[in-house]
Amino acid sequence: MDDKRRRFLKLAGLSAVAGIGAPSAFNLLLKGEVNASSPAPASHGTESPGSGHGEAPTGVRLGMVIDVNKFAENPGMAQKCVDGCHQTHNVPIFLDSKGQVNPKDAIKWIWKEPFENLFPDHSHYRRNDALHELPFLALCNHCDNPPCVRACPTKATFKQKNGSVIMDFHRCIGCRFCMAACPYGARSFNWRSPRERDENGNLKFIKNLNEKFPTRMRGVVEKCNFCAERISEGLPPKCVEATGDTGAMIFGDMNDPNAPISQVLKSTFTIQRKPALGTLPSVFYII
């Protein structure tokens, strides 16, 4: 399965450069890509002072670039990403007795967040007004040096060969050490059972169940999995798919110099969340 994924990503990268119409979902992203790349080479990542540990130079390393301007040009698209992801992954919505979303029990894989909360280490003094209106998306950074994986006492959360950090829901003991360890607030806990049903036997908190993805039991941690289940089928992540051909989200192998994402990272100024912590996030933002 790993090989299959690798071959797919290679193919996607190659087809991006050659421009041949490979039947890949990445073609959609490609269109936005050509405009974004410029010939001027720019250094990124490995030489930045924040990346103290050095990044994995070989093998596949999945990454994502989020172009916030494109989200601003397409109002409502950010919410489409959130809804698409949460729908696909059967993320429950817990309501309190008044029918409001209960923040205490909230489970979030990807969500909208203001600039100052997403980047609290950046100065907010005399920032341009537009910045505060921009719809930023927050999700797991799939760090190359993930503190959550270091903290987990059972290897229930682990880094795959392709760089994505995922969960084994059946091994998690629910100690929530990973939640304390994550500097990005990317992890959620099932404080109650998302599988609860009403008297008619319908799931109370999950509407339109996706049969292809498991629901979780109570007492385990969950988070964005970079759509591991879709990538293994050759599909792009659901949030990326939701951005259509806008090029607002570029996803692929950062270690493949020909991949669209590498082209963008090389040619565009991007920022990562809390780079000083040395976690080496795989999610980049264009502002």
């Binding site: 270091r150 059972t154 290897k155 998690c172 003991i173 629910g174 100690c175 050490f177 007492g219």
Partner: peptide, 25 residues
């Protein structure tokens, strides 16, 4: 610790899958 675990019946996973990089181990 047991009272705090979300899945207390899986507590022995800490022994079944020893993880020296975790301080909880």
């Amino acid at each position: 610790i047991m009272a705090d675990l979300g899945q207390p019946t899986r507590a022995l996973n800490v022994l079944l899958h020893p993880t020296p990089n975790s301080m909880l181990f």
